[in-house]
Computed example of a mutant assay.
Amino acid sequence: MLKKVENGPAVVVCNTCQNSPEAREDEHGRHGGERLAEALTRLQASDPRYDGVAVQDMPCLFACSEFCTVHLRAPGKVGYVMGRFEPTENAARAILDYALAYSQSDWGAVPYEEWPEGVKGHFITRTPPEGFVVE
């Protein structure tokens, strides 16, 4: 079943992702995706710079060979799936900093030199927006 959400720049986080390659849950029985979703939501709510980027969560992005995955999307822009994050505030900040630059880009491409260190090496896929492919 689908749930209607705002149609704008968003970080969609998998709230059921495993905690790490070795463990689905932490010592308290919490999934890494749940913890990352909380860190993203908390940080987004505490910093007005991120007001233009929604944090949304859903179960399973089907990137199960990875862990702590997010999907970055916006209308008319290339989307990205990133993963292998630790469910921490530092990772949440890197994701939201990248999402902010992404939301301000013309079609979803952010120059590499503007990428926060915390997202480098975390990209899994990119997806074209409906009706387009990348040249």
Rank of each mutant, 00 (worst) to 15 (best):
Ala37His: 05
Asn19Ala: 09
Gly83Ile: 00
Lys3Pro: 01
Ser65Thr: 07
Asp51Gln: 06
Thr16Arg: 08
Asp47Tyr: 05
Lys120Ala: 13
Tyr98Leu: 14
Ala63Asn: 06
Pro59Phe: 06
Pro75Ala: 04
Leu72Asn: 02
Tyr50His: 01
Leu40Met: 11
Val110Leu: 00
Asn90Thr: 12
Tyr112Gly: 09
Val53Cys: 06
Ala10Asp: 02
Asn19Lys: 11
Ala91Ser: 11
Phe85Asp: 02
Asn90Ile: 15
Pro75Ile: 01
Glu34Lys: 14
Ser20Cys: 07
Thr41Ser: 14
Cys17Ile: 02
Glu66Cys: 13
Ala109Val: 15
Pro48Gly: 10
His28Gln: 08
Lys120His: 07
Thr41Tyr: 04
Pro129Thr: 00
Arg49Thr: 03
Gly8Met: 10
Ala54Met: 08
Asn15Gln: 06
Ile124Glu: 00
Tyr98Arg: 01
Lys77Val: 07
Leu43Cys: 06
Tyr50Ala: 01
Glu89Asp: 07
Glu117Gln: 11
Pro129Cys: 03
Trp115Asn: 02
Glu6Arg: 09
Val119His: 00
Asn19Arg: 15
Val53Ala: 08
Ala45Cys: 05
Leu2Trp: 15
Val81Arg: 00
Ala94Gln: 00
Val11Ile: 08
Ile95Thr: 02
Leu61Met: 07
Glu117Gly: 06
Lys4Phe: 08
Asn7Pro: 14
Pro59Met: 07
Arg30Met: 13
Asp97Thr: 01
Leu40Gly: 02
Met82Ala: 11
Gly76Asp: 06
Gly33His: 04
Pro48Lys: 08
Leu72Ile: 15
Asn90Leu: 14
Asn7Cys: 11
Glu27Gln: 11
Asp47Val: 03
Asp57Pro: 05
Tyr80Ala: 06
His71Ile: 13
Gly131Ser: 05
His31Cys: 12
Ala45Thr: 08
Ala54Thr: 13
Leu40Trp: 02
Tyr112Glu: 09
Asp47Lys: 03
Asp26Val: 00
Ser105Lys: 10
Tyr98Ile: 04
Glu27Ala: 13
Ala10Met: 12
Gln44Asp: 02
Ala99Ser: 08
Pro59Val: 10
Met82Gln: 04
Lys120Asn: 12
Gln18Tyr: 12
Leu61Arg: 03
Ala45Leu: 04
Gly83Ala: 13
Ile95Trp: 03
Asp57Thr: 13
Val81Met: 10
Leu43Gly: 01
His122Met: 09
Ala45Tyr: 04
Met1Glu: 13
Cys14Thr: 02
Ala54Glu: 15
Cys14Phe: 05
Pro129His: 00
Val11Phe: 04
Glu89Thr: 13
Tyr102Met: 04
Pro111Leu: 07
Val5Met: 09
Ala91Val: 02
Ala63Phe: 12
Thr16Gly: 03
